[in-house]
């Protein structure tokens, strides 16, 4: 991230170390992950230890320290989704894309993530693909959603 962008984010949060979590979220929103150099820069600008920034980045599940794929597929693992078979959805994506939960395919096409409940429990099992919510999923629907994604990409 260039200095101007980073400074804009830091200024938005008044360069307040108490806002570290929010600052890191804003960086990730731009970069899709948390680059090491940006984290070092944040530490320097806020005059806090780098170890603290790193500690924060590894504690919260929302952060990724590795670049993530072009598409992000998040499967909800809340209880309601679990009793309706969410684990099978994860298995299916893992099999179809040869990717571990939390990991990214070698071609950077897709990152598979799990989340502990997004609060749309009545529609479980549920997954979010690139910000779009898909409720009442099953093997067939999942297949259709992901095939569409692949097709879309092939076109581009």
């Amino acid at each position: 991230m260039d200095d101007t962008k980073l400074n804009t984010i830091l200024d938005k949060h008044h360069r307040d170390p108490a806002e570290l979590l929010a600052i890191l979220m804003d960086i990730q929103a731009v970069e899709n992950y948390l680059p090491k150099d940006d984290m070092k820069q944040v530490a320097k600008e806020l005059k806090i230890p780098f170890s603290k920034v790193y500690s924060m980045a590894t504690f919260f599940a929302t952060f990724s320290l590795e670049p993530r794929g072009k598409h992000i597929c998040t499967v909800c693992m809340g209880t309601a989704c679990h009793v309706r078979g969410a684990a099978r959805l994860v298995d299916q994506v893992q099999r179809d894309f040869e990717v571990e939960a939390g990991g990214t395919t070698d071609d950077m096409f897709l990152t598979l993530e799990t989340v502990n409940c997004v609060g749309a429990c009545a529609l479980g099992p549920l997954m979010i693909v690139d910000g779009e919510y898909h409720g009442n999923m099953d093997a067939g629907k999942l297949d259709r959603v992901l095939r569409k994604l692949k097709k879309q990409d092939a076109k581009e």
């Binding site: 924060m56 919260f60 599940a61």
Partner: peptide
């Protein structure tokens, strides 16, 4: 408004407060 970062434990009051203070939860 303070946003959480995906940590269930931050619903615990002292962890939540630590997080508002800019620490891990």
């Amino acid at each position: 408004i303070n946003k959480g970062g995906g940590a269930f434990v931050c619903g615990e009051s002292t962890a939540l407060m630590a997080s508002i203070e800019g620490d891990v939860g």
